[in-house]
C-alpha cells in the first residue's frame, strides 16, 4: 500500500506522510476505496497534516476520494489541512468541494460520530 491504512473500530484512519506523485495519488485513491469495501468501514479520516503542498491535482484526488467513499455508503472527513495550504487552495479558486473537514484527528472522529447520530443526513454540518 502506498499509504498505510489503519482500522480503528469501525473507522479507517489514513495518514498521508509523504508527498505523492500523480500516479501514486491515483493508487492511493484506489487502495482507499478497496479498503473501504473490504472492511465495510463506517467512516474514513484522511489526515494530511504532513502535506506542505496540496496542488490542484492532489486537491481533486482528495475530494474525489471523499465523494467516492460517500457514494459507497461510508462517511469521510479530511483533517489536518495546514493554514497556508488552505489559503493557497482558496486563492487558486480551488476548494475541496463539499467535503467535511476538521482541524485534527480528535475533532474529525467527533464529526464522524455526529454523522453517525444522524444517519443518512449527509456529511458535515
Amino acid at each position: 500500500m502506498i499509504v498505510p491504512i489503519l482500522k480503528i473500530g469501525k473507522n479507517l484512519i489514513i495518514s498521508i506522510q509523504i508527498p505523492l506523485t500523480d500516479q501514486q495519488a491515483r493508487q492511493f485513491q484506489r487502495e482507499v476505496l478497496e479498503e473501504v469495501a473490504r472492511t465495510e468501514a463506517f467512516g474514513i479520516i484522511i489526515d494530511i497534516t504532513a502535506m506542505d503542498v496540496v496542488d490542484s491535482y492532489m486537491a481533486r484526488i482528495l475530494s474525489e476520494t471523499a465523494i467516492d467513499v460517500q457514494l459507497m455508503g461510508a462517511r469521510a472527513v479530511i483533517v489536518g489541512i495546514r493554514p497556508e495550504v488552505a489559503v493557497t487552495l482558496v486563492q487558486m479558486g480551488r476548494g475541496l468541494g463539499d467535503v467535511a473537514t476538521a482541524l485534527n484527528l480528535e475533532q474529525g472522529l467527533a464529526k464522524l460520530e455526529k454523522m453517525d447520530a444522524r444517519k443518512g443526513a449527509g456529511h458535515g454540518s
Binding site: I81, A86, V87, V90, Q91, G95, L96, T101, Q107, K111
Partner: peptide, 12 residues
C-alpha cells in the same frame, strides 16, 4: 471572504 473560505476548509 477568502479567510472565511480557508477557515471552512480547515474545519472552522
Amino acid at each position: 471572504v477568502i479567510t472565511a473560505q480557508a477557515a471552512a476548509m480547515l474545519g472552522a
